[in-house]
């Protein structure tokens, strides 16, 4: 049952394109004011799910609601109550900053007497005070993204959908973009965001992991990490690539991946971990200088979960 505080409901959402199932029976709820992250490899169905929720795509089966409106029958009402920022940069490059703001303010039905105030707010928020007469296409990507975010919330929607909003943006711009998201969330805006950046995933209140069109995990980042049963070790070796080759298909090893110069190795169990690892590495002549059990990073959880669910579709 949907409570008053539920912003988004997905109930068995399914989307098929011909024989290909892009999204399969996905269900979840997002509470009001939550920052809800959608994490998954490319092609996992994140964007498709978001498009179904925002009324851009009709589900093949299942249903849901956004801001209390049915996604099957009330798409127009949903569009008045959400802000949406698509994956591609999607403002008009040949319009100035001000012209873009004015255009979207009119489309979103911002009342005439509020337009000036909202425009000033967006300009300030995006840090574009001196740039209002510049063509949007000439702005650096980070600024474009902030402007796009500003345009998506001109009408102060209760729910904001962001589809990989920071892809291709440098880390500093990404950071300042997330500051804005927090600011919006503080004011009670529900934020639904897809990403494939792990550090962004950490910023979310709750995370949904998607792979091959299915929801494979849903929890807070902390609980997702804790919930990982298989132990992870960080090991130091003289040659990480050779060590990966040696361990990847070794018995009792779930996964071995390079993390900088170190190796993260996921084992089936922690019994005799050091001894077993040393033996595998010795066989291949890799020298081994130490090991430490670590709390899994979100990426480890992600990789392990995706692997357990049959691997990423692209591999």
């Amino acid at each position: 049952m949907m409570s008053r505080d539920t912003a988004v409901v997905a109930d068995g959402l399914t989307k098929r394109f011909g024989d290909f199932v892009a999204v399969e029976d996905v269900s979840f709820e997002v509470s009001s004011g939550e920052i809800f992250g959608f994490l998954g490899p490319n092609g996992a169905g994140k964007t498709t799910t978001m498009k179904m929720l925002t009324g851009l795509l009709l589900p093949s089966a299942g249903g849901g609601s956004v801001a209390g409106f049915d996604i099957m029958t009330e798409a127009e009402a949903i569009k008045r109550n959400i802000g949406y920022m698509s994956q591609l940069f999607s403002l008009y490059a040949d319009l100035t900053v001000d012209e873009n703001i004015a255009f979207f303010a009119r489309l979103y039905g911002v009342p005439v007497d509020r337009r000036r105030e909202r425009r000033d707010w967006v300009v300030e928020m995006a840090g574009l005070d001196d740039q209002v007469d510049r063509l949007t296409g000439e702005l650096p990507l980070g600024w474009k993204q902030r402007l796009a975010l500003g345009c998506a919330v001109l009408h102060e929607p209760p729910i904001l959908f962001l589809d990989e909003p920071t892809s291709g943006v440098d880390p500093i711009s990404r950071r300042s973009f997330w500051d804005l998201i927090y600011e919006l969330a503080d004011r009670g805006t529900t934020v639904f965001v897809t990403t494939h950046y792990m550090e962004e995933a950490e910023y979310c209140n709750r995370l949904a992991l998607m792979n091959r069109g299915q929801l494979i995990a849903l929890d807070t980042p902390a609980r997702l990490r804790e919930g990982m049963e298989q132990p992870i070790f960080e090991i130091r070796v003289d040659s990480a690539p050779r060590a990966v080759a040696a361990l990847q298909h070794a018995e009792g090893v779930v996964d071995a991946a390079m993390f900088g110069r170190e190796l993260h190795v996921t084992l089936e169990s922690d019994a005799d971990a050091e001894e077993r690892l040393r033996r595998h590495l010795d066989e291949r002549g890799v020298s081994f200088s130490g090991l430490e059990r670590i709390t899994p990073a979100l990426e480890d959880v992600f990789v392990a979960r995706v692997r357990a669910a049959g691997g990423a579709p692209v591999d």
Binding site: G55, L56, K79, I82, Y84, L88, S90, L107
Partner: peptide
């Protein structure tokens, strides 16, 4: 930009 338009009212 069409996608953005489509997501507005």
């Amino acid at each position: 930009t069409m996608e953005q338009l489509a997501a507005t009212p």
